[in-house]
Design a protein around this nucleic acid. Structure first.
Lengths: 386, 386
DNA sequence: CATTCCATAGAACACGCTTACTGTCCGGAG
DNA sequence: CTCCGGACAGTAAGCGTGTTCTATGGAATG
C-alpha cells in the first residue's frame, strides 16, 4: 500500500528517514527553545491546561481576569495551537481536500476557487492536489487526504469508466464515510448505489444539446465534434447531447464527424489543421471545450478560413479565454465556482447553525446555458466542400 | 486572536459548536464501527502496536511472516493511518502551505502548480489559500498554516510596504522558524534582517527594463504605463525598470504617462478607453501585466485603433492569454512554475538524500526575458496626437 | 554445556490538546 | 446559621502513533 502510493506520486522513498529528519528538526533550535505548548502557557499564567483550552475555545465560562492573564501569556510566549493535537483530541481537522487534474486549467481553477472560498467561510483550510489525469495518482491523493482526516474529499472532473478504478474509489468512499468524512464527486457521474458519496453535477448533456441546436438553427448540419478524451464521462455526455440534438432535427450523426482526442489546445490546433488540409466536409465545429476551441481557432486563422463567415465555431465551459478570442467565442456556460461551493456545502453543511440536515449521499445538478457571442453565423452555401 | 482571525476570514462563529459536531460525528456510525486504529490492527494480527508501526514505517526489522499478517489485518480492517497522531508523535506533517491572491489568476496558478508538483515529489500535500489581496487575510492564513505545522509557508505575490503589516509578518516568520518551519517569500522583497525567511524572486526590474528598451528601440518615446496597484512592490519594481530604461536613452519620464490602478482586465479596459477618448499622447502602452493588456487591447479595438500599426502594446508575465490575443502579445516571460518549485526546495530541501545543506534564509533570483510577438511595431509618425 | 549475540517483539511513555468529572468558594434562600 | 446552587478552576483520562528500553528465544561461539 505504501510503496504503491509512493510510486503513484513519483516520490522518492521518504518513509525511511522520517526518524532522522525529526532528529534534525529538534536539534534545529540551537537556543534550546521549542514551540510553546498549552502546558507552558498554563504555567506562565498560573492556571491549569484546562483553563487555557477553555480560553481558546470559548466553550466554558472563564473569569475575565483569568482570561486576560492567559491571553497575555499566550502572546508573550508566541503560542500557536497545534492543530494536530487538537484534531487528535477530538475536534475536526477543519480541512477539506480537493483533487483536480490541473490547477492552471481555468475549468478546475474556478471550481477550486469555489471550494476554497466556501471552505474558508467555515474556517477550514483546503488541501489541493493535481492528479494530472492519472487515476492512480488520484486514488493516492484520496488516501493521503483520508490520512489527514479531511472533512471532505472532493474529486473533480470527468472519470473513465474503468472497472477496477471505480471499485477502488468506491472502497475509499466507504472508508471515508465510516470515519465521518465524505467523498464528493464534482462534475462526474455517481459511483453506484453501494458507494456513500455526495455529488454535484452540471447539465453537461443539456448544454451540448442547446449549443448544437443553436448551430442547427443557423442551418449547420455537418458539425465536427472536436477533442475530449473519448472514454471520459465528460466527452460521453457532451457527445450524447450533441447527438440527441442532431437526431431531433432529423440529422443523422456521421461517425466521421466525431473526432475526440484530448482537452488540449495543441490537439485542437493540430487536428483541425489536418482536417482543413484534407478539405473540410463540415460547416461548423463544436470543440469539446474552450481550450480546444482556441487551438482550432488558430488553425482556422492560419489556413485563412474565416470564422464565422466560412466556418462557425463553438466551445464549452465559458472560461475567460472565450472572451479574448477573435471572434469572441460562443460557448456553454458552466457554473464552475458555484459547483465548488456546493460541493463543500454538501459535505460539511453551511458551516452555520442550519447544520442539522444530515448531508448524506446528497446529489445536486446545476444548470448550464449557452452564451452567444460572435463565432457563429448562418451557414453560407460556399462553406461546404470549399 | 481567535476572533480577529475569524473576522479576517469572514467566517461564521464556528468555535462554539465544535463539541456538538463531534458528537454527531461519532454517532454517525450507526453500526458502532469507527475507524480502525493501530491497536485494532495489532489485536487482529496478534502482535503489539509497536510492530504494526514498524511494518508501516519499514524502519526496523520485522519477520516476513509477521509483516504479512499485519498487512493482511490492515487490509481487512480498511486501516488508514491517522496523520494527526503521526505528526503529533514527532514526524513531520508533510505539508506545505501556499497563499496566493487568486487561484484563477494564471500568474498565481502557475506558481501554485510548481509548488504542488515539487511538494508531491517529496510526498507532501499542499494547503492552498486565497488572500484576495487582503493583508489581514494573508496573515490569518499564515497563522492557520502554522497551527497545522506546515513544513513551509509560501506567500506569493507583491506586497504593500505597510509598516504594521511587515512587522507582523516578520513576527510570524520568527515563530515559524522557532518551530522548524520556514516562511518563504515568493515574488516579493525580503522582510529585513531580523526575519528568518527564504525568498525566491524574479528579475522584475530587469524585465521591465528590457521590454521598455525594446519599445525605445522601435522609436517609441512616449510610453504609457498602465495598471498595477500603485503601492505594490511589483508595481514599484516594474516602474523602476521602466524608468531606468527611459533615462538611459535620455528620455525624461513624464508623470502623466504613469497610470497605475489595479491588475484587473476591467481596469485596463476602462482606463484605456478613457485615455483614448481624450486623444492619446503616447505611441506605446506598457501594461502592468498581460491581463491589463487584454483589457487595453479590447479598448483599443473598440476605438478602432490598430495594434501595432497605430499604437504598440506590451504586457508582463507571459501567461497563456498573451498567445490568444490578436495581435499576439509581446511580453516579459517570468519562470512562474520554476519559482514555485524553488520555493519549496528552498524550504524543505530536495526531498532526497542531498538534504544536508541547512536551508536557512536562502534567497534566489530567477531571470526574466522578453518574448517578442506581434504587438509592437516601429513608431509611425501618424500615431502621435492622432 | 555455558555464554554471547542477533533477530524480533512487547511494554510503556511521550507528543499537545480536549473534556468529563471533581472540587472549591461564594452569595442567597430557607 | 445551614444548605444549596452557580461560577470557576483543577485533575486526569484519553485521542492514535512513534520510539526507547527491555525481554525472549535460538543460533553461534567458546
Amino acid at each position: 500500500m505504501n510503496p504503491t502510493r509512493a510510486q503513484a506520486l513519483g516520490s522518492a522513498s521518504h518513509n525511511s528517514h522520517q526518524g532522522v529528519s525529526r532528529m534534525r528538526r529538534q536539534s534545529t533550535a540551537a537556543d534550546g527553545s521549542r514551540r510553546a505548548t498549552v502546558t507552558d502557557v498554563a504555567r506562565r499564567a498560573g492556571v491549569s491546561t484546562a483553563t487555557v483550552s477553555r480560553v481558546m475555545n470559548r466553550n466554558y465560562p472563564v473569569a475575565e481576569a483569568t482570561r486576560e492573564r492567559v491571553e497575555a501569556a499566550m502572546r508573550e510566549l508566541g503560542y500557536v495551537v497545534n492543530a494536530h493535537a487538537r484534531a487528535l483530541a477530538g475536534a475536526s481537522g477543519r480541512t477539506v481536500g480537493i483533487i483536480v487534474n490541473e490547477l492552471i486549467d481555468p475549468f478546475y481553477a474556478y471550481i477550486a476557487r469555489g471550494v476554497e472560498r466556501e471552505a474558508a467561510l467555515g474556517g477550514r483550510l483546503c488541501l489541493v492536489c493535481c492528479a494530472q489525469g492519472d487515476p492512480q495518482r488520484e486514488l493516492a491523493f484520496v488516501e493521503l487526504m483520508h490520512e489527514r482526516r479531511a472533512d471532505a474529499v472532493i474529486v473533480v472532473g470527468g472519470s473513465v469508466a474503468d472497472r477496477g478504478y471505480t471499485s477502488e474509489l468506491a472502497r475509499r468512499a466507504r472508508e471515508l464515510d465510516a470515519g465521518g468524512s465524505k467523498l464528493v464527486l464534482c462534475g462526474r457521474p455517481p459511483l453506484g448505489e453501494q458507494a456513500p458519496t455526495a455529488a454535484v453535477e452540471y447539465d453537461n448533456e443539456g448544454g451540448a444539446f442547446a449549443i448544437t441546436d443553436h448551430l442547427l438553427m443557423q442551418g449547420h448540419e455537418r458539425i465536427l465534434y472536436l477533442g475530449g478524451p473519448p472514454k471520459l464521462s465528460t466527452t460521453r455526455d457532451r457527445l450524447a447531447g450533441h447527438r440527441r440534438a442532431l437526431e431531433l432535427r432529423g440529422v443523422t450523426p456521421d461517425p466521421e464527424l466525431a473526432q475526440p482526442g484530448t482537452f488540449s489546445r495543441n490537439f485542437g490546433y493540430r487536428r483541425m489543421a489536418e482536417l482543413l488540409r484534407d478539405g473540410p466536409d463540415f460547416t461548423a465545429v463544436f470543440a469539446a471545450n474552450d481550450i480546444v476551441a482556441a487551438g482550432a481557432a488558430q488553425a482556422l486563422e492560419e489556413a485563412g478560413v474565416r470564422v464565422p463567415e466560412d466556418i462557425s465555431l463553438v466551445g464549452y465551459d465559458d472560461i475567460p479565454v472565450a472572451q479574448e478570442l477573435r471572434p469572441r467565442l460562443t460557448t456553454v456556460h458552466v457554473p464552475l465556482e458555484e459547483m465548488g461551493r456546493q460541493a463543500v456545502r454538501l459535505a460539511v453543511g453551511g458551516g452555520d447553525e442550519d447544520d442539522w440536515r444530515e448531508p448524506t449521499t446528497g446529489a445536486l445538478r446545476l444548470g448550464t446555458h449557452i452564451v452567444v457571442r460572435d463565432s457563429v453565423a448562418p451557414r453560407s452555401g460556399r462553406s461546404t466542400r470549399m
